[in-house]
Design a protein around this nucleic acid. Structure first.
Lengths: 193, 193
DNA sequence: GCAGATTGCCTAGCAGCGCTAGAATGTGCT
DNA sequence: AGCACATTCTAGCGCTGCTAGGCAATCTGC
């Protein structure tokens, strides 16, 4: 019994090692540098070991993405709970979201560009997939008025995601970053305070 | 002289053939199906011919993306000029934009996900890169008020782009598509009419 | 009209990719 | 110690983007 549990524990550790290595390699050199051979060398095991843990490279990236969703939710929640007014909360949440995307581009990439096999937008899905959204929802709801809070949150989220993506790819100049964020927030929380 | 021009003409034709084949293949089967071998077979030439026209596969995708930017600008302009009021213009422009992204996913992908080597956000860049943006600007400007029209347009654009991306990847349910678009427009053009 | 120079194209191949089969190694039990 | 099982590694498959070098068709000057 104990011997089995030890093995499982070691396996779990190594699995985490793989995910961490993939993430760090991606954040350091981008996802194009994350090859199965490179990753195997990084964890000091041979290539096929990866496939005894994950179905393929995509599954590894998905695992990294899941980590990202969890951390994003945490950061957004921290920003929201620290803020006082409703408008401040929305602004704080928006800033936290875009900061996350900017500071962890590879992670954000895994979450929204690479791993497409994660089913979204269903409340019965895994928690990590809608925890972050729920945080946004908490911040948007007080400002919804007659509009559907959920759909309004989706729209606001899209604004954040669009800003993050366009800024990340150099499509939008970074100087006006805060300015754009401020405009977005002001459109969803018109009344100051 | 004439012999040179004929050669150049033939070269230009074949170059267009490559771009068209790449685009059609991508739209039919996705960009992952667009390999240099497959593309060469499609145009009935050998692989290295591609490299006598383009620096690499990325350059071919960029060429497709450029076509996309031109067509997007045309469609957005058509929608804008056909609309009457300022709010209607914004709504029309928004619908045209997201429709484009939804109906030509591979093309939109080439424009915003794949081809990153296109420099953006500078007025002195190539026309096709800011023509579409200028169309959005035309629609947004009357609604800017005290805000900077350019930056407000960037923000609105981000909203459209975010919606397009999240809907495309299944991150947002398609049922509420029009609803979200309506909410976004209403946040940027609050007064009805 | 025909040899020579030039241009353009294709065949073949390189290094690297994700992934897998089967050999080899190490581990725990009797 | 020797057996049986689990695990890991070596080697290789088919594919990718890309390139070198030989071959053939084309144009030029006589």
């Amino acid at each position: 019994m104990t011997i089995e549990t030890r093995r499982e524990r070691e396996r779990a550790q190594r699995e985490q090692l793989i995910v961490t290595a993939a993430r760090e390699l991606a954040e350091a050199e981008g996802w194009e540098a994350v090859t199965t051979r490179r990753l195997a060398a990084e964890i000091e095991y041979s290539q096929p070991v990866l496939y005894s843990h994950f179905k393929g490279k995509g599954a590894i990236m998905t695992a990294v993405a899941v980590q990202g969703f969890e951390e994003l939710a945490i950061e957004v929640r921290a920003a929201r709970t620290a803020a006082r007014g409703t408008r401040e909360a929305l602004a704080a949440v928006a800033a936290a979201y875009t900061d996350f995307a900017q500071k962890r581009p590879a992670l954000y990439d895994a979450m929204f560009t690479q791993a497409v096999d994660l089913t979204f937008a269903s409340p019965d899905g895994p928690a990590y997939l809608h925890d972050g959204f729920d945080e946004l929802l908490q911040a948007v709801r007080p400002l919804a008025g007659d509009d559907d809070p959920g759909i309004l949150t989706e729209t606001f989220w899209a604004g954040l995601h669009g800003l993050a993506m366009l800024e990340r790819s150099g499509r939008l100049p970074l100087e006006a970053r805060d300015h754009r964020l401020d405009l977005l927030v002001s459109r969803f929380a018109p009344a100051a305070g």
